[in-house]
Design a protein around this nucleic acid. Structure first.
Lengths: 339, 339
DNA sequence: TCAAAAGTGTTATCCTTACACCCATGT
DNA sequence: ACATGGGTGTAAGGATAACACTTTTGA
C-alpha cells in the first residue's frame, strides 16, 4: 500500500513598499532544532484534508494567522513533489517530523499598494523583505549587477569544465543564455531556471544544506554564505519564490496584474517604478507612458499629487471594470538599456 | 489529526493526427459500478509516495502502462484540491473508495507528429479522440459554431435571469465576454473559464452528475446529454482537459511548442493546420508564412513533398538547437475572420 | 485544361523606438 | 534661477493585415 502524504501550502506574498518590491517572510517557530540556513521562509502551513475545503481558503487563513495580513489576488504557482531535492522537512508548522512524503503547493499573492504593516500582535516574526535580498542578480535596474561577472560566471565556468567535453559545452551554453554571458541578452523572466542553475552549481546555499541532510551528514560549522548570492530560505521556499517572481514578471506582460500591486490612486511614475521593481529592468519613461495610454487600462482623475518632488503629477486609477468585459492585456516593457 | 490524502496524476496527452488535434483517452477498468457518464477519462493513476521519486516519472510510467505510449514533452498544469466540486471518486485505478481526500495534479504532454497508434496489446481501451468531441464550441475554424447561439447563449441568459438584478448583469457580462455574444471578440485562450461557466449553468453533464453524487441521489434514469455540448468525462478530467487546451493555446504564442507536435520534417501548410487545429481559429495563409519566416525557427530542407494534392511543398525542420541558446519566441496568430 | 495547393509581391496602417523639448513646482 | 520630476511632439523603422497574383503538380 502507499504511504502517507502531507500537503504543504506556501505563499509568495508580494507588495510594493516605497517603490521597492517586497515579499512577506516569516521567521520559523522559535524552538528546538533551529539551523542557520533556516533563518527565514515563506508563510506556509499544512493542508488539512478534513477541514479545508479548498487550498486557497486554507492558504488565506494561515497567512492571516501567521502575519496578520489579509490576502487579495491569489493564484496557484506550482506543485513540487520531488523526493530529496530540497524537500521540506519538519519545518511545517504543526506537522511532526516523519509524517511521510511532503508535497509542496506554491501560491502567488499580490497585495495592493502602500500596504498596512502587519500588526505586531498576530505576527511573530513576519516582515516585508525586498526580494533583491534573495535574488541580487535579478536586479538590473542600475545596469548589470557585478555579482554576475565577479562570482556567478567564474563559478559556472568551473562547474561546466568539471565534466566531459560534450556535457561541458551544453552547460556553458545554458549558463550563457541564462546569465547573459558573452553578449547574450538578459531575459528577466527566467528567474527559476537561474536559481536552479545556481542550486546545481552549489552557489545556492540550500544545495549544501540539502546534501548534508539527505546524506545524514552534519554541516561542519561555518557554511560560508556569500551575501552577494542572496539569502537562503528554509526548505524549498527560495525555489517557490523564484517561481513566483518569474511568473509575475511574465504575467505582467499579458495580464494587467501590475495594478493589483497599486493603491486605488497612483501616478504614472509610481506605476512605472512598480513595474521596474518587479521586472528588475529600467524602462523608458516616455514610451512607458505611451504604452499605458494605448492600453486604456487607466483613467486620469484630473487630481494632482504634489508630493512627488518636482512638478505635481496627475493621479490615475485602474479601470477595474474592464476585467469583466474584455480580456484586458498587459504592459509591454519599453526597455531603456540594451546591453 | 489530519486525514488521509491521495494524490492522483492525470495527463492531457495531445497530438496531431491527419491535421486534427487529438487527445489520448482511456475507457475505465471494466467492472462493477460503471456509470454512463464515466464513459471515458484521461490516463491517470495514483502517485505512490514510497516508490515514485517525482510526479513526472510516475506519470510517464503509468501512461505507458495504460496506453502503450511513451511521452515526450511534459509540463505541469494545475493542482486541483476542491472538495465536492467534481472530485475524483473511486475511478482512480488501484485506489479503493474511501481512501480519503483526493488531490488531482494535471499534466500536459505533447506527442510529435504522425504518431504511432498505441499498440493494442498494452492498451485496453486507450484511443486518440479529437478534442472537438469534448469542446465543440471551441472550434471556430469554419466560423462561429452554431451551438453557441442555438444552445449556449439562451441557456446562459436564462441562468443569468434567474438571479437578482445586480448578479444578473454580472453574469450576462461574463457570458458575453467568454462566448463572444453581442459582438464581443472571441478569445480562444479562455477554454477553462468557458467550461467552468458551462458547469455552473448546468450545461456540462458533469454538473448534474456531481450534484447527484455529493447529495447521495441516484440519477433518475436518462440524463439527456446534448451531444452538441460535448462528451463528458469521468471525475474532473474535462476540467483538466480544458486547462490543458487553454494553456497550450496560450503557450503556443510565446514559446515554440507547436513544433513539439510536428514530425521531424513537415510542410508549412501542415504546420499551419496544426496551429489552427490547436487554436481553433482559421489563419491567414500568406501572413502565417511570413510570421514563420520572421521567427527563423524553421529551416528549409530543399526537399519537396509531393503528397500534398497540388503543387509539391518544401519540407522544413524545426531548428531545435535554438532552444538552448536564445529563449525562442512563439508564433503570433494572423487571424483570418474578424467576426 | 482545370482544380488544388504552394508560394511571391505590394501596400496601408499601426506599433515600437528613439530623440528632443516644454511645463510646473519647491528651494 | 535652477534642480527635479511631470508631461508632449515627432519622425524613422519594423511588424501586421489585407490585397492580388503566379507557379507547379495530379486528375
Amino acid at each position: 500500500m502507499s504511504g502517507a502524504v502531507t500537503i504543504g501550502l506556501s505563499a509568495v506574498v508580494a507588495a510594493i513598499r516605497d517603490g521597492e518590491a517586497v515579499v512577506l517572510v516569516v521567521r520559523p517557530q522559535t524552538g528546538e532544532g533551529l539551523r542557520e540556513t533556516d533563518s527565514t521562509g515563506l508563510p506556509s502551513g499544512p493542508f488539512d484534508p478534513d477541514h479545508d475545503r479548498t487550498f486557497e481558503l486554507a492558504l488565506r487563513d494561515f497567512v492571516t494567522q501567521q502575519t496578520g495580513f489579509e490576502l487579495g489576488y491569489v493564484e496557484q504557482l506550482y506543485t513540487f513533489g520531488d523526493k530529496g531535492r530540497d524537500a521540506p522537512l519538519a519545518d511545517l508548522g504543526g506537522v511532526a517530523p516523519g509524517a511521510g512524503r511532503i508535497i509542496s503547493v506554491g501560491y502567488l499573492a499580490l497585495a495592493p499598494g502602500a500596504l498596512p504593516l502587519p500588526d505586531r500582535t498576530a505576527s511573530e516574526g513576519a516582515q516585508w523583505t525586498p526580494w533583491t535580498h534573495f535574488f541580487p542578480w535579478e536586479d538590473w535596474r542600475d545596469g548589470r549587477p557585478d555579482v554576475i561577472d565577479d562570482v556567478i560566471a567564474p563559478a559556472c565556468i568551473e562547474w561546466a569544465r568539471a565534466h566531459d567535453p560534450a556535457d561541458s559545452e551544453q552547460r556553458l551554453t545554458r549558463a550563457r543564455a541564462l546569465f547573459a554571458l558573452d553578449g547574450a541578452r538578459w531575459n528577466e523572466e527566467r528567474v527559476l531556471e537561474r536559481y536552479e542553475l545556481l542550486y546545481e552549481t552549489g552557489l545556492a546555499a540550500e544545495a549544501a544544506r540539502d546534501r548534508t541532510r539527505t546524506q545524514g551528514l552534519q554541516p561542519k560549522g561555518g557554511l560560508k554564505i556569500d551575501a552577494r548570492l542572496g539569502q537562503p530560505m528554509s526548505s524549498d521556499h527560495r525555489r517557490i519564490l523564484a517561481t513566483g517572481l518569474g511568473r509575475l514578471r511574465g504575467k505582467m506582460k499579458y495580464r494587467p496584474v501590475a495594478f493589483e500591486l497599486m493603491p486605488p490612486k497612483f501616478t504614472l511614475s509610481a506605476l512605472q517604478r512598480t513595474v521596474e521593481a518587479i521586472s528588475g529592468v529600467a524602462l523608458h519613461k516616455q514610451n512607458f507612458r505611451r504604452v499605458i495610454e494605448r492600453t486604456e487600462l487607466v483613467e486620469g482623475l484630473g487630481v494632482l499629487d504634489s508630493d512627488t518632488g518636482g512638478r505635481p503629477a496627475e493621479l490615475f486609477r485602474f479601470r477595474r471594470e474592464l476585467l469583466a468585459t474584455r480580456q484586458a492585456t498587459g504592459l509591454t516593457l519599453p526597455m531603456l538599456r540594451e546591453s
